[in-house]
Amino acid sequence: MKDILVLRDIDQIKAVSHPYRVDILEAFAEEPLSAKQLSELLSEPHAKINYHIKTLLNAGILELVEEKVKSGIIEKYYLPKAKMVIMDKSILNSAVYDENVARTLNQVSISLFEKISDDFYRAAENDEVKSKHVRHYNQYYLTEEECKEVMDCLEEKITEVLNGKDKKDRDNTRPYNITLMGVPDLRKEKKAKK
């Protein structure tokens, strides 16, 4: 399994734009899993798992790594092609960036936000959200380019601070999801126009 798979194709991006498929990818550790095992892990019907596995396979995000015969039935085992899946930034600047691509990227963003929201609520319900870990900045009036510049600057700083420290085999570590979002405040924008 590679460390990173860069998605450069719109069909690959569509494949991971569904929050349920993200759950499937995150269910894997280092060992291959069958559709039956995934079904049990995620408490979902086997047929539903198979449908989403097929989509991820066709997009080249999952791969079939082994087949075992159990009681006369062939059981297939899968692994993600990489530990982490990221989207190639050039897709945003490509000549084929049209309404369909924009819709797909919005769906990816919605799926990601839903996943982050679920993680946040789960942590909050377990009294694991600490104020020192939450930052909210609002009322900044920026152009699209300025917002992108802020996001790029923060990404560079996070990469600099972590610099290989994000290994899970270190003592006293736990997984954190760090999310940076620049979201237009459409409610305030509408009020200002009135």
Rank of each mutant, 00 (worst) to 15 (best):
M1Q: 06
K2I: 10
D3C: 03
I4N: 01
I4E: 03
V6F: 00
V6L: 06
R8N: 11
D11A: 09
Q12T: 08
I13H: 04
V16D: 01
V16Y: 04
H18E: 15
P19N: 05
Y20W: 08
R21L: 10
D23E: 15
L25F: 03
L25N: 02
E26R: 03
E26P: 00
E26A: 03
F28A: 02
E30A: 13
P32M: 01
S34Y: 06
Q37M: 10
L38A: 05
E40G: 02
L41K: 14
L42R: 02
S43F: 12
A47S: 14
K48L: 13
I49S: 05
I49Y: 01
N50Q: 13
H52M: 04
I53K: 01
I53C: 03
K54Q: 14
K54W: 05
T55E: 13
L56A: 08
A59P: 03
G60M: 08
I61N: 01
E67F: 05
K68L: 08
V69G: 00
K70C: 05
S71E: 13
S71F: 11
G72S: 04
I73T: 12
I73D: 02
E75Q: 09
E75V: 15
K76W: 02
P80E: 05
M84Q: 12
M87Q: 10
M87H: 00
K89F: 13
S90M: 08
L92V: 07
V96F: 14
E99K: 13
V101Y: 13
A102W: 06
L105K: 04
L105N: 03
Q107K: 15
V108P: 00
V108S: 04
S109H: 11
S111E: 12
L112D: 10
F113G: 14
E114T: 10
D119R: 02
Y121M: 09
R122Y: 11
R122E: 15
N126T: 11
D127P: 00
E128M: 13
V129R: 00
S131N: 11
K132G: 08
H133W: 04
R135S: 14
R135Q: 12
L142F: 10
T143M: 04
E144C: 08
E146G: 02
D152N: 12
C153S: 15
K157E: 15
T159D: 09
T159Y: 09
E160Y: 14
G164I: 06
K167T: 12
K168Q: 09
K168E: 15
R170Q: 11
N172Y: 14
R174F: 15
R174G: 11
I178S: 01
I178R: 01
T179M: 07
T179Q: 02
G182P: 01
P184Y: 04
D185W: 10
L186F: 11
L186G: 00
R187I: 15
K190A: 12
K193D: 05
K193R: 12
